[in-house]
Simulated scan of single mutants.
Amino acid sequence: MNIFNYLVIVLLVCSQTTMAAKGGGRGGKTTASPHTITVPADMSVEATTPQGIAVSYAIIALDGNGNTTGYNCTPTSGSLFPVGNQTVSCTTEGKKQLRATDSFVVAVTEPSQPISPPPELQLPADITVEASSTSGGAIVEFITSALPENLNVSCLPSSGSEFNIGSTAVECTTSDSEGRTATGSFQVTVNSLPIQEPPVEEPGPSTSSLTVSWAAPSTRENGEPLSAAEILGYEVYMLAEFSGVDTIIEINENSTLSTVIENLQDDTYHFSISAIDSDGLSSQPSDIMTVVVQTP
């Protein structure tokens, strides 16, 4: 065997040995370590409300390499626990064969002191008003209160504020000495004023006027002469035929021999005239004059 053949054989043997070593490495198996979970010790707390108390707790969950991992607990941290004993069960997340589980008990005892009820707001119902002008809003006042009665109530916008046209939510809140709060709201709606149209005057019924005139009598009914000085005045009788209105117009001047009658509506009017002397005696009515009034 020469030296070249020897070198080739050695190289081939070394190459095969290296490959066998690598193959053996791929064939090995590793086993993952299980998770661990640490829960709090059993705890006892006192209820702060008639419903119980919200309890928070801390959990430490690690995988097999000591890294934090996810977990699930029931009931969850921060849940409301009622009076009595309740078990909290916790389990890590991941493959079932690696999970860790543990539990602890939360014992909620009755409150040692009477529990006052939480604050309660008493707000008005929704408010609707009209704007104070056609362009502006309206100043709105309202009353709020809270139970217990000595609690202050804060609202935004506050009572007495000017509210714009439209709907605005009023947000209110109150707090008691224990830090418990109550919130609520109501709506204030301001309607715009309707535009006032000027009133339209309806035309009244058409009317007319007429002048009634007469001559002064110169004799009495028995034929005796009658001077103007003996005449005290006249009475004009007017009867509206359709409306049935009967009117007497007194003329207290003997020198007045006519009168204007105004605001006559469409009708048929009958007139007669009597003279009154200084003794208060009335003459017989004159012949009836008939006038028909008809406006165009």
Rank of each mutant, 00 (worst) to 15 (best):
P75A: 04
P75S: 05
G78H: 06
S79V: 00
S79R: 00
V83Y: 04
G84R: 05
N85Y: 03
T87A: 12
V88C: 11
S89G: 01
C90N: 11
E93T: 15
K95R: 15
L98Q: 07
A100D: 10
T101H: 01
V108C: 02
T109D: 05
T109R: 14
Q113R: 12
I115P: 04
I115K: 06
S116F: 03
P118N: 11
P119F: 08
P119A: 07
E120G: 00
L121V: 01
Q122P: 00
P124K: 06
P124G: 04
P124T: 04
D126K: 05
T128P: 00
V129R: 10
V129L: 05
A131T: 11
A131I: 10
S132Q: 14
S132I: 12
S132Y: 02
T134Q: 12
G136F: 11
G137A: 14
A138P: 08
A138V: 09
V140E: 10
E141K: 13
I143C: 01
S145F: 05
A146D: 06
A146K: 00
L147K: 14
L147D: 09
P148G: 06
S158V: 09
S158M: 09
G160T: 08
S161E: 14
S161A: 15
E162P: 02
E162N: 15
I165M: 13
G166D: 07
G166N: 07
S167I: 12
S167P: 02
T168G: 10
T174G: 03
S175H: 00
D176L: 01
